[in-house]
Design a protein around this nucleic acid. Sequence first.
RNA 1: GCAGGUGUCGCCAAGCGGUUAAGGCCCUGGAUUGUGGUUCCGGUAUGCGCGGGUUCGAAUCCCGUCAUCUGCCCCA
Length: 424
Amino acid sequence: MSELIGAPRGVYDILPEEAEQWQWLESRLKHVIHLAAYREIRVPIFENTDLFKRGVGETTDIVNKEMYTFLDKSDRSITLRPEGTAGVVRAYLSNGMHRLTPPVKLWYFGPMFRYERTQAGRQRQFHQIGIEALGSSGPAIDAEVILIANDCLEAVGIKDCRLELNSIGCTDCRPRYRDLLRQTLEPKLPLLCEDCKERFERNPLRMLDCKVETCQAQFVNLPSTIAELCQPCKEHWDGLLSALEQTGLKPVLNDRLVRGLDYYCRTVFEFITTDKRLGAQSTVCAGGRYDYLIETLGGTRTPAIGWAMGLERVRIISDAPSGSGPSVFAVSCDEKAALSIATRLRREGISCDLDFAPSGKPRGLGKQMEKANKTGARFAVIQGEDELASNTISIKDMKSGEQTRIPAQELVPFFSGKVGTPAN
RNA sequence: GCAGGUGUCGCCAAGCGGUUAAGGCCCUGGAUUGUGGUUCCGGUAUGCGCGGGUUCGAAUCCCGUCAUCUGCCCCA
């Protein structure tokens, strides 16, 4: 035997039991999103590197240290997408979707790639589902987008999740706030960590969510992002709060929430769980408004907002069930007879499995029954020597143990109404 | 990129320097040559992540390496 080749670090296989949970999750999430009239868009999983550099931002960690970037055979720099929004916006522009009636409401699902240290709830290939609403600037669409995220989480059984919300202003008021922050913090600069000193120069807002205690100790009585919003941003913020209030969704206002990607403005939010199964990770969904991104990527100024949800994390804290066994298991001393029974049932939408012996020779009925039991089939359909001779079929209810014999041609009618189509 | 933990059968796991490496699950065969879920019996690692070293002797000690987990940074 040759040496085994393992999977690369940070990727993993989704085995059948878990894959069934994924199908359950995906179908429920899709359903919620479709109810709000968002339509699916499928975009490539790799793009030109510049798209992410420009879109996500040169100063972000994602671009600086987490991208899977390589040269293709023609020396083009290609990057495996680290997030979904940049690609969706690129597709929106590439395909002239800006001419559609706004807002253009889209959703996507698929793998994302980030070169990071792996740990609980974090891998190098992971999956996000996300929505984007392009072309509407009012607070109502912000509320819609947030409410959909909330309903998605509820639809998969996630309860202990809080919504943190903030506004980080626009190109008018954010520079003012940034200067104010710099002024306030300048005297304390020597007391802060190296990262914060760096952030002070490049992106002062990022200092606010520094995890270093000695830094946070210096960050008391700082000016609040909300208090410094300009009039239009303030109106937008108030509009969002009242829209959310009308739906009964209660956000936790957090004026330290700033988010890591450069393209956000005004509304930013995160859904955060306290479920300890996620280890150090707690954010399951995050997003915000990105009114300048489309322009940055070569379009005309277009307001937009969206979020992304990490499905690995969501699965762990959801109550996704794995699939159940077939409705029927066909048992026979003759494999061809069993297959023929299975086929008749399958064509009527009734799931049915049978035993395929490793040796190629049918195993005893006892062994087959054992297997029927193990697969969790609701009924066993038995056609042994007797049944074959009399053109009948025995049907055994695997729960009660009751068994009845019916004419072979009544097989399908017997089951109609008794069992459904396969679960998912 | 940094800091720790762990690596024995497909899975869980005992062993902690001495001769044939427990056990459980799963899988598989049989008791039961036409009937499952209980029970009983049998089979399944010449091997202890990999490479070196110490030793009369190593899964057990040391070094390196790889993988994995946990945390930091950051993020979904």
